[in-house]
Design a protein around this nucleic acid. Structure first.
Length: 964
DNA sequence: CTAGGGTTAG
């Protein structure tokens, strides 16, 4: 049977001619037909002359490291019934092991069973190697145990197999057995043992092996030994590793690389760069790995120039593999040179997942979320398998997407599909994602099923709980980790401290501070910042301040944090003083600018805002580098009354993101320019930017402020139908506001009654506000009852209803309302108006006489009132809530804070410039009329920002068309 | 039978 088949095989072989080219096939000596009972064996174990050629061929491929060719050749041999000889079998098996060709290897094993190869020590060793490389350690061990005799190499193969299969303890146990058998370990043995000790973090044992090496002369016998010792000590202490490195007699490129990379991984990039320089000056050859490590060091060290020099070296030496390109990309990303990173990416024709992942990180880092999503999709179009690292990179992006939770969940499903749900990094990212979406239950479930819960997992979970205000749970998890012996690090404390943020938490906060000192947790800048914030929030400002002032290495984050704490606590003066101290010491970051900007925006301090703009252009060279900064300036200019500047920045942006568009649409809306808001909205849609929930809030309220009821309704429907955005409570609030202010009170009410979630206070307030315009006291009263159920202690709510009663002359109702407020001990916020002159803030309260020029201001005010009365102005006393005689009411009305501010503005602002006034509450109706008349009388433009919007008073009319 | 190398928490 065998003989008959032979000719066809000959043909096959001829088609695949290999060297040597001798016409060996014609000389082929056909084996004798085998007896049928031996059929199972299929091959003859006999060696034939031509089998020598095949074996040579295998050796040839081995030399060239062509594993696949080895297997192909072996396939040919198999079909010819030729067995590899004693020297070749190990080569084939090794190739099978490297290629994880389990079936081929097993088949080969079966084939040699019963042949004399079984008793060959090299063949058996090769089987041990093959099985362990394929992860079949039990099979490997079985072969090993049944071996008739073993030498060091067989022991090494078994030990190495154990290490390869992460069975480190078994590897060490084998070493003991070896010593009992009086067999001397060689360099290969100790290299594996050192690796095992390293993986087990067994410092003591590793040192013993180190001693064994020294005693047995293994330390300098082979550079692998020293290098693996360096790698081992690097897991504990780079300075010990360096001692070993210095003692090394036979240093080679790999040992240098190991030490250089060790320093980088320990965050000591400077040492690693210096070591690289010594390597060059001592004349050692570097290779592509050296460059790879040094690129990482340059990125870490943060010196762009050095990094570019290394890049040039890479080009000069001609190293370009994907690893190098990837490292360079990451370096440029770290330097915020996203363009270079992108260029490198494009320069490579075939990209693997790791390169795509780096491209994704680069894009995310550059802040363009939409581009990042595009890259993620392109990556899949390029048929790149999304791996667990991709997921870890992309998951944090979900929080910024309009359908983020859905996207996050499908990524979660994908992780399960590719069997990576138990990957600790995936677990951490998922816990993080779910907590940010306030899905604490999902996060808790994932955390509970995580196999590896290290410090990082605990930190992520704790900060997630803190994010959800679950202080008690966060603290419990903290206790749990301590009890489990997982050492909290500085980030753990940094994560948990924000949970303790009021005076009653001071003791817990202090004890955490004590814990830090007791455990010797290093206080880095961010932990110091967290402690500072904790003390300030817990009203121990002195300790907080001390911590801040005495910390030597304050980074910009420390400054930014205290700055924003002051801003949050309305300590404006402290914030500004701090800002000026800061900029003389460290370079402010865009976070600094955004915080200070928010302060100026809040205060309507346009002059200072403009100064900050100029300062930023000087310090940051261009706003384009940081889009969020540009967006913050758009908001600032819009909210400080200068739409012109906002537009200037907006239209000059080389690239806009969704926040830019939202800021501009919101800006137009606030100024009552609904048409422009809608125009901008359609431009945005035309540019294929997908509007988000936030966009619709801005756009809907723009319609509302401009009385564009019809447009608003269309927009609301389009949001659901065309943009697939499920309306949230805020959107219903906009809708109610839109309808109610347009006079469709019943329709507004029916929206409230049918909306899928419970209305909140702001929705009821919108309805009540509209009831005032349309004098519907009945609906106002019932809405009010729902409102105070939600917010019983907000004095403003009572004032709102009281206003309506007063306007309709229902004085007894006004009185009883005031009594309720008085009995409950509620205080309403005082009305304040201010004007910024030459960066100085002039603040006025009603009836205020504290201003330096008070006398002149009142004189001016009296003059204005008299003049406009002649033009037809009639004071509307219904805006006075106090039940007094008309004379007192008039006096009160005449000294409202906005009137004082306007009078002062007219006296002090250059004619020609508009007068910019800001009010903390909504403008009073009488003051609104007053402003219209004054603008006509004085031919000045008055721009007033109240709590809801802008009013531009020009020549007797207001931009809000009395619609507010 | 053996040492060093790219992308992964906020």
């Amino acid at each position: 049977m065998y003989g008959q088949n032979t000719p066809s095989y000959q043909l096959d072989v001829q088609q695949n001619i290999y060297p040597p080219k001798a016409n060996y096939l014609s000389k082929m000596e056909l084996p004798l037909p085998l007896s049928p009972c031996l059929n199972k064996l299929h091959f003859t174990p006999k060696q034939t002359p031509e089998s020598k050629h095949w074996n040579l061929l295998i050796k040839h491929h081995t030399k060239l490291k062509e594993d696949q060719s080895i297997l192909n050749t072996y396939t040919q041999m198999e079909s010819l019934g030729i067995l590899p000889d004693n020297a070749t079998l190990p080569l084939v098996l090794k190739a099978c092991g490297r290629l994880r060709a389990v079936d081929r290897g097993k088949k080969l094993h079966n084939a040699v069973l019963g042949t004399d190869l079984v008793s060959d020590i090299r063949a058996q060793t090769a089987l041990v190697d093959f099985y362990s490389k394929c992860g079949m350690l039990m099979d490997a061990r079985k072969v090993f145990d049944e071996m008739p005799d073993r030498d060091v190499v067989s022991w090494n193969a078994m030990i190495s197999g154990c290490v390869g299969c992460s069975e480190y303890k078994q590897a060490l146990a084998l070493f003991s057995l070896m010593q009992i058998g009086n067999l001397k370990a060689n360099a290969v043995t100790v290299v594996e043992l050192i690796r095992a000790c390293g993986e087990l973090l067994e410092l003591r044992l590793g040192k013993e092996i180190h001693g064994y090496c020294l005693r047995n002369g293994l330390f300098d016998s082979n550079p692998h030994v020293g290098t693996s010792l360096i790698g081992f000590y690097l897991k504990f202490d780079p300075s010990i590793a360096f001692l070993v490195f210095k003692m090394l007699g036979s240093r080679n490129t790999v040992s240098w690389n190991s030490m250089i990379s060790g320093y980088v991984n320990h965050g000591d990039s400077l040492k690693s760069i210096n070591l690289f320089i010594s390597m060059l000056t001592e004349g050692f050859k570097c290779d592509s790995v050296t460059m790879l490590v040094v690129i990482k060091a340059c990125a870490e060290y943060g010196n762009l120039e050095l990094g570019m020099q290394v890049h040039q070296l890479v080009i000069k030496f001609g190293y370009n593999n994907m690893h190098i390109t990837n490292a360079l990309m990451n370096m440029y990303t770290k330097f915020a040179d996203f363009g270079s990173s992108f260029e490198l990416f494009n320069s490579i024709p075939t990209k693997d997942a790791a390169l795509w992942n780096s491209m994704l990180s680069c894009s995310i880092e550059s802040g363009f979320i939409d581009d990042s999503i595009k890259i993620f999709l392109e990556m899949q179009l390029d048929e790149i398998q999304i791996n667990e690292r991709t997921l870890v990179i992309i998951l944090p992006l979900c929080v910024h997407l309009s359908n983020g939770l859905v996207n996050g969940k499908s990524l979660h499903a994908y992780a399960i599909k590719i069997g990576k749900e138990n990957n600790p990094h995936i677990g951490n990212s998922l816990v993080n994602m779910y907590t940010l979406f306030n899905h604490v239950e999902d996060a808790t479930r994932i955390f509970a099923t995580m196999i590896v819960s290290d410090v990082i997992s605990y930190n992520v979970f704790i900060s997630g709980l803190v994010h959800n205000n679950l202080t008690v749970q966060a603290f419990e998890i903290f206790i749990q980790m301590v009890e489990l012996g997982i050492k909290p690090n500085s980030q753990t404390i940094t994560s948990i401290l924000p949970a303790f943020d009021s005076a009653e938490h001071l003791n817990v906060g202090r004890s955490l501070h004590g814990y830090v000192m007791k455990c010797g947790i290093q206080i880095d800048a961010s932990l110091n910042t967290a402690l500072t914030e904790m003390y300030i929030n817990c009203e121990d400002e002195e300790t907080g301040r001390d911590l801040f002032e005495n910390y030597p290495d304050k980074d910009s984050i420390s400054w930014n944090s205290l700055l924003s704490t002051y801003i949050k606590n309305n300590q404006e003066q402290e914030a500004l003083i701090l800002f000026h101290r800061m900029i003389s010491r460290v370079k402010p970051t865009y976070v600094t600018i955004i915080s200070v900007l928010s302060l100026y925006t809040h205060l309507s301090n346009l002059p200072q805002g403009r100064c900050l703009h100029a300062y930023t252009l000087r310090r940051f060279s261009s706003l384009d580098l940081e889009l969020s900064l540009a967006n913050a300036f758009i908001t600032m200019y819009a909210r400080c009354g200068s739409l012109e500047y906002a537009e200037k920045i907006f239209y000059n942006l080389p690239q806009k993101n969704i926040v830019s568009w939202n800021a501009m649409i919101g800006g137009y809306g606030m100024h009552g320019r609904g048409d422009d808001a809608m125009l901008t909205f359609s431009k945005m849609v035309n540019e294929e930017i997908k509007p988000t929930q936030v966009t619709f809030v801005s756009a809907l309220s723009a319609c509302s402020h401009s009385g564009m009821i019809h447009t608003g309704l269309i927009l609301f429907h389009s949001m659901v139908q065309d943009f697939c955005i499920t309306p949230e409570r805020v959107h219903y609030a906009c809708l109610v506001d839109l309808l109610a202010r347009g006079g469709l009170l019943n329709e507004a009410k029916s929206v409230i009654d049918t909306m899928p979630m419970a209305p909140d206070a702001s929705i009821w307030r919108a309805l009540i506000g509209a009831c005032r315009i349309y004098s519907n006291t009945h609906m106002a009263k019932s809405a009010f009852e729902s409102l105070i159920e939600l917010e019983p202690t907000n004095a403003g709510n009572y004032v709102l209803l009281s206003n309506i009663y007063a306007a309709n002359g229902l004085w007894s109702e006004v009185k009883s309302l005031r009594l309720i407020v008085k009995n409950k001990g509620l205080k309403k916020a005082a009305g304040r108006s201010w004007i910024v002159m030459k960066s100085k803030l002039h603040l006025f309260a009603a009836g205020d006489k504290s201003h330096k020029q008070s006398e002149k201001i009142y004189k001016k005010l009296t003059f204005l009132l008299t003049s406009i009365k002649e033009m037809g102005y009639v004071p509307d006393l219904s805006w006075v809530l106090h039940d007094e005689d008309d004379e007192r009411k008039l006096a009160r009305l005449s000294s409202h804070s906005e009137k004082l501010a306007i009078a002062f503005g007219l006296m002090s602002v250059n004619s020609g410039s508009p007068i910019l006034i800001t009010k903390n509450l909504r403008i009073c109706g009488d003051c609104h009329e007053f402003s219209k008349y004054v603008s006509k009388l004085t031919k000045r433009t008055i721009i007033l920002r109240d709590a809801a919007r802008f009013h531009h008073f020009v020549d007797g009319s207001c931009s809000c068309k009395d619609y507010w």
